[in-house]
Amino acid sequence: MVATVVESESAGAEAYAEAFDAAVAADERIEPRDWMPGDYRATLVRQMAQHAHSEIIGMQPEANWITRAPSLRRKAILMAKVQDEAGHGLYLYSATETLGASRDDLLDKLHSGRQKYSSIFNYPTLTWADVGAIGWLVDGAAITNQVPLCRCSYGPYARAMVRICKEESFHQRQGYELLLALSRGTDAQHAMAQDAVDRWWWPSLMMFGPPDDESAHSARSMAWKIKRHSNDELRQRFVDICVPQAEALGLTLPDPDLRWNEERGHHDFGPIDWEEFREVLRGNGPCNDQRITQRRQAHEEGAWVREAAAAYAAKHTDRLHGEATA
């Protein structure tokens, strides 16, 4: 009797697993209440949470320049961009919650360092030109990574990414336009733009993650169609896109080995300093402590607002109930 029950249960689980595999194979989307393997869910929570955290932490380096934007036009643009990053974080937190994660738990894990955010945001924004370099290179790399995520097998993540990608394209263009203005400006402005590109180029290439043969989760994520292209493939695509864009800007990319390879039909580029990447990942980047400290502080200092809103809502609900029963 017991044996039969166990048998039929495992047969049921197998049927679920088969249905899941078939849906992924047929390029159908997996939706929140579908059965999914535990590791698929865990991988998505890890990746989506990290993505959401990156959007939220990513507000800091640029917000740093809002009060010092050189014109009202640039200031309005930068505020809209930083507000978008907040929005993107919220879309992604909501999508992560469809997998059973709780918002408070996610924030707690960010604040305590148990979940990560993209290492790129641990670099400082030293000059106004950095705002342009972030828009062009950092958001450009993010878009290259994110466009394939619009076809990710998990429905809520894919839908969030569609919305995000639409909005990111303004981010990249405003950055490019900003750099172009500087590049065509005075010698000092041109030098400032070049310096920003020199500092952001290599960290941007690192955003695609470790090389394919060292990437821990890549193969499985590709099989699950969470990921559609390998890290190196996307990195190459990004380099090929950037080279002519840099030329049009009148700026150079800081890589003496960068050249067109006729045979491959791609640009060759120099070796990436992965030791630097690992150091920043370990928490030893220029701004790791500052970013997390500022995030925690913002959260703690906003506590009274959350409490007041909750108290107001509770009072209001009580009054409504009072009227209903009276």
Partner: peptide, 11 residues
């Protein structure tokens, strides 16, 4: 369009 957290309907 999506979801969000808020203390009450107005917020």
């Amino acid at each position: 369009a999506g979801s969000l957290h808020a203390p009450d309907a107005e917020m």
